[in-house]
Design a protein around this nucleic acid. Structure first.
Lengths: 210, 210
DNA sequence: GAGTGTGAAGGCATTCACAGCC
DNA sequence: GGCTGTGAATGCCTTCACACTC
């Protein structure tokens, strides 16, 4: 078994992926190199080289990385060449915004089911997808990844319910820290906490006039 | 000048803040301690103690932290006791979702202006706020923090424009890495890259059957 | 010559472990 | 007795620097 990569490496790989995909469209040469990526992404070139070398030797010494090979290599690694079945749970403002983007842009997340708790939303249709009762989810739905766009209240219970019905990974926008089994992969994003952090940075670093 | 705190510490402080504010409502004792916080947040208790000790000595040995003192201390530190003037730039689906939340929930971000590029949006009213032309922003607006909910195209230019008109911090949801002066505080969140990361984790860690 | 791949060094963040105080 | 605050130890991530290849 190869050396275990950290979550940080995987985060950066997704960043490289976004960047390299753009470069592939823009550049005729068909090549990039670690110093070009470094400038765009503000990441040390040797870190980029190390990250990329961890998932395969895509570079050619003296000439850089083939954009085609790199896009393919990263996509292969991140599982972007297979289709994931996902559930969007909670169809409020944020959920609708995300669903809209998902249905309007082609991606490898094309199999989407939508769930909610609220009586008056269940059975309605959003972006062409019918909203189901989240308590009715079952292993038969074969959901791999759930996106949680629900309030903090009940989020833990909902997550537990999803997991006991086969969900393997969760992207949560609920403003609460979930306690999940360690075999479940998850990330938590709290949009308004992010605003607090930016304000905190401004507050702390800007006002160090002793 | 005290020891310089890292961005990671500030991230966690905002997490403690959210957690401690909830505990304050729920607990009669008026006290918590690092092991309780540790259980809720899944963070090592000694790291919590270290973080909190960095911004002041709120704890009482043998008894823990007073919830009141802690909430106040963290809020003071993060600048949550002053009001920030913010701009929401880009009033699409995500922008509207965020604006809705901001206007419906009381916070220290009560002074909000809304901007967009699109002709047909300028002059309309969203959540009771009139949408302005982003090219017309000026230092007179006195915006401190801008939230960017715009597409990747033009995001760099828009950010540059905002900064040259007095914006000091940016929370960007544009799916692109911005190059900003180092005196500007910013964070970048790419919602769909987050989905790629979760899928990447699932893909990599789940399928290590050699 | 130019840029990758990678051991070794360095720096930073977390955890340990315990003295100190309530 | 119990929990904080914190030097010291550990571990992880990043950067350096250069041998190696195209």
């Amino acid at each position: 078994m190869e050396k275990m990569l950290s979550e940080l490496v995987i985060e950066r790989l997704s960043l490289y992926h976004r960047c390299v995909k753009n470069l592939k469209k823009e550049k005729d040469s068909g090549y990039t190199d670690s110093s070009e990526l470094s400038q765009i992404l503000n990441i040390d070139p040797s870190l980029i080289r190390r990250d990329l070398s961890l998932i395969g030797k895509f570079g050619k010494r003296g000439m850089g990385y083939s954009l085609n090979a790199l896009v393919d290599g990263i996509e292969e690694f991140l599982g972007k060449q297979r289709s994931w079945k996902i559930a969007l749970v909670g169809i409020g403002n944020l959920g609708t915004a995300i669903l809209h983007h998902l249905t309007q842009n082609p991606s490898n997340y094309s199999e989407i089911e939508v769930f909610d708790h609220a009586e008056h939303k269940i059975g309605t249709t959003v972006e062409g997808i019918s909203v189901q009762d989240v308590t009715k989810i079952s292993p038969k739905n074969k959901i791999q990844i759930a996106i949680l766009t629900i309030p903090a209240e009940g989020a833990q219970k909902t997550a537990d319910h999803l997991i006991s019905n086969g969900v393997q990974a969760i992207l949560s926008f609920a403003p609460i820290s979930l306690s999940l089994p360690k075999n479940i992969f998850y990330r938590e994003i709290d949009l308004f906490r992010e605003l607090d952090i930016v304000a905190g940075l401004l507050s702390y670093f800007n006002e160090k006039k002793d």
